[in-house]
Design a protein around this nucleic acid. Structure first.
Lengths: 163, 163
DNA sequence: ATAGGTGCAAAAAATTTGCGATTGC
DNA sequence: GCAATCGCAAATTTTTTGCACCTAT
């Protein structure tokens, strides 16, 4: 499980997310269904960086009949309305992470044990803006991932599985 | 094709890469074959951010018989010995990019037309190090991608395909 | 009523692997 | 000669889709 940075290891409440989502759904003529609510509640209450497979297995604990397809479709929705970010940390699967209501943040990833630490740094963000402007870009989002060894893994020599 | 930043739009020569690769191969008991050389030469002479599919199609122009599997296997090798970086820009495929002999750099990606601009910024890198250190990490590599609209796409309103 | 949603199973797309036939070293 | 490679096809893995049947609105 990911360690979190000092000032933002809170997740937005699933209820708050439903609010945002409801507005989006109303505007787009989408319907609220039992399986969507279940998937969304599960996603936001779990937190972290979830693969569809992981999320699906948690959802199935509540309702065995929900199909992967629905989880994929729902996560695509959440992504499109900006409530979830899609991440790609190198293993072959897309992971989703709660977006709205949280500060933007980036990731430190231990390549040995898989630990993920979140952080944010306003000065770096400001400099990113500046660089982009220099190249004529207007930035709408970004990803920054630092890969390396966490404190423990710098000492350890015994094999340890990734995440 | 990607625009390049001021001071490093050179690609390392395929020959220089063969050198590094040969050393690696000698140390690991790997063999140099016709298809590997072809793939490697093609990869380094093309430059850019290539999907396996794209690279394969170029390779096939020289030798119809090379299989995708070999391209995958060769790129994995290049990646393992540090000569190629694996990237994931959001479309569902891994892209490879020449690594050794180039300065490290990051990416500005236009979400409308797919243009990729490379840049580097030492101050940002220094701050990344600092942040990582604060969290006890020793950074070995990183990825930073800024998504947004390039100069052209901020003006245009007509539809334009990605990449 | 009806547009949108769901499950299921088949389809795609991306990548990996088993294997008998090569081929560097 | 022998271990490493190759091509090919089959297998995996991840994600998408077609379709007949449901269900919010």
């Amino acid at each position: 499980m990911p360690e979190h940075d000092h000032d933002h290891d809170h997740h937005p409440s699933a209820e708050a997310m439903e609010e945002v989502l409801n507005r989006y759904m109303a505007e787009h003529g989408l319907k609220s269904t039992r399986q969507r609510s279940l998937i969304i509640d599960t996603f936001f209450s779990l937190g972290g960086h979830l693969s569809v497979e992981e999320l699906w297995s948690k959802v199935r604990e509540q309702d065995t009949k929900v199909s992967v397809a629905t989880v994929y479709r729902t996560m695509k929705l959440l992504h499109e309305c900006g409530l979830a970010h899609a991440r790609n940390f190198g293993d072959g699967q897309t992971r989703y992470e709660a977006a709205a209501g949280r500060h933007h943040h980036d990731h430190l990833i231990c390549t040995r044990c898989g630990t993920i630490v979140e952080f944010e740094n306003d000065r770096i963000e400001a400099m990113q803006e500046a660089v982009a402007r220099k190249h004529g870009f207007r930035v709408t989002s970004h990803k920054m991932e630092l890969y390396g060894l966490c404190r423990n893994c710098q000492r350890e020599t015994t094999p340890q599985p990734r995440a």
